[in-house]
Write a protein that binds this DNA or RNA. Sequence first.
DNA 1: AACTGTCAACGACGGACGTCGTAGATGCCC
DNA 2: GGGCATCTACGACGTCCGTCGTTGACAGTT
Lengths: 129, 129
Amino acid sequence: MPVPPQPTRAELAILRVLWQLGPSTVRRVHESLRDTQDKDTGYTTVLKLLQNMTEKGLVQRDESERTHVYEAALSQKRTQRDLLRDLMDRAFGGSASTVVAQALSMKRASAEELAEIRKLLDEHERRGK
Amino acid sequence: MPVPPQPTRAELAILRVLWQLGPSTVRRVHESLRDTQDKDTGYTTVLKLLQNMTEKGLVQRDESERTHVYEAALSQKRTQRDLLRDLMDRAFGGSASTVVAQALSMKRASAEELAEIRKLLDEHERRGK
DNA sequence: AACTGTCAACGACGGACGTCGTAGATGCCC
DNA sequence: GGGCATCTACGACGTCCGTCGTTGACAGTT
């Protein structure tokens, strides 16, 4: 399992919990999901998902205690990058600028976000110089 | 069928062909896919996909002639926006600036692309003013 | 020792997806 | 008109995904 496969929708939702809470038990993940999510997922469903994800290498499991503790195997950044890369290739012909253009066209690109983006761009340019 | 569901991977590959070639027959789509794609998809597979997509409202079918002609129902821009929005919500917490940051961190964000992005940003700012 | 609650593990199931074989209709050509 | 090619339509299959019921192990309580 050199490179784990991309997470599915449900798996990504779980990863988000793990990134936010850090290493957690099934119960904690389940409850956090219940809070955040609109949909109501059963306990054993979350357990099964986490078992699958362990199998795939998406998470690491500490089973030294009776109650296992799960932790994301890859960083949030890394996963975001992989997912965005994939979408960029499949839907945007690999063009980063088109991605940015679409991102800007969304309502959520608020004023603060625009300033943030410009800052990123400056930094990136300075570094590339 | 007010709003068609999001296209799957295989469906998106077909949509890309339709956006590039314009309204096309199954055969044309199939051949174009054979050229572009690494994977080798059978004719009837493409046909079935297009039939499903018609059902879902992703494409429109002109069956006035014996050989049907398919056309993308939604624009490329619109589809890109929907897909990016979805990923942004699921993986980036809805933050456009994080998306942009990840996009910039990729090798494909070349010098020309950076210039292009900056231009987009300027335009966007001017318009927002 | 019996009861109760929590946990991991396993198996099953329905649905979506991608794939293709095959049948049936239609058009073309000698 | 018979034969061949092309096209749509239909049905099936294997796989993955998300879901959950059930079982068995274990721990704490009384």
